[in-house]
Simulated assay, not measured.
Amino acid sequence: MNSGRFETGFQSPATHAADRHRLVVRARVQDMRIAAIWQVLLPFSANVENVDITTSPDSGFEEVAIALVRTRRELLDSIVARFNSMSWVTSTKLC
């Protein structure tokens, strides 16, 4: 079940670092829905710089880390809200 937990390390500095963000979507092992992640990201595909998938069976979780560039805060918020509405997502983290 989705805890709706949202973690953020987001700060809005006036430097170029504000152009880069990392979004981590976490799910239990074998609950990750890669196709659903791409459906959420499709409208922002030009902003996706890198995707890294990590499975840690010992911890019981899988994570997808998405590096985004040049993405407005309101779009980031909408992406996070979409992921948090999905029952298989245990948490999201934006940094």
Rank of each mutant, 00 (worst) to 15 (best):
R5D: 11
V48K: 00
D19N: 13
E63A: 13
M1P: 11
I34S: 09
G4L: 05
C95D: 08
K93Q: 13
R5M: 14
E63W: 04
T90E: 09
V80L: 00
V24N: 11
L75H: 13
L68G: 00
A65H: 02
A81T: 14
V48L: 01
D58K: 12
F44T: 07
D19L: 10
R5P: 02
N2E: 07
T71H: 01
W88Y: 05
S59L: 08
R33G: 04
F44H: 15
W38Q: 09
L41S: 02
N2Y: 02
V25K: 01
V89Y: 00
C95I: 12
E74L: 06
F83D: 02
S91F: 04
T71F: 01
G9N: 08
G9I: 01
P57A: 15
T55H: 09
P57C: 11
E63N: 07
V25G: 06
L76T: 09
D19E: 06
T54C: 07
V25R: 01
H16A: 13
S3K: 07
V48Y: 01
A81K: 08
R22P: 03
V48G: 00
V24I: 14
V25N: 04
R82D: 13
T8Q: 03
K93S: 11
A18S: 13
L42D: 15
Q30P: 00
T15N: 10
M32H: 02
L42I: 04
E49K: 11
A17V: 12
S56C: 14
P57K: 11
Q11K: 12
F83K: 02
R20F: 07
R26S: 13
D52L: 14
V29W: 02
T15A: 08
R22F: 06
L75N: 12
D31H: 09
I79Y: 01
V51C: 04
V51T: 03
L42P: 01
E63Y: 06
N84H: 03
F6P: 03
A27D: 02
L23F: 00
N47L: 11
V64T: 10
L94Y: 00
N2P: 09
V80T: 07
P13R: 06
S59R: 12
R70T: 13
V51F: 05
A18C: 08
V80A: 03
V80E: 01
S56A: 10
G60I: 03
A65Q: 03
A17S: 12
A67Y: 05
V89N: 01
G4R: 03
E49S: 15
A81F: 02
R33M: 04
H21Y: 05
S91H: 06
R28E: 08
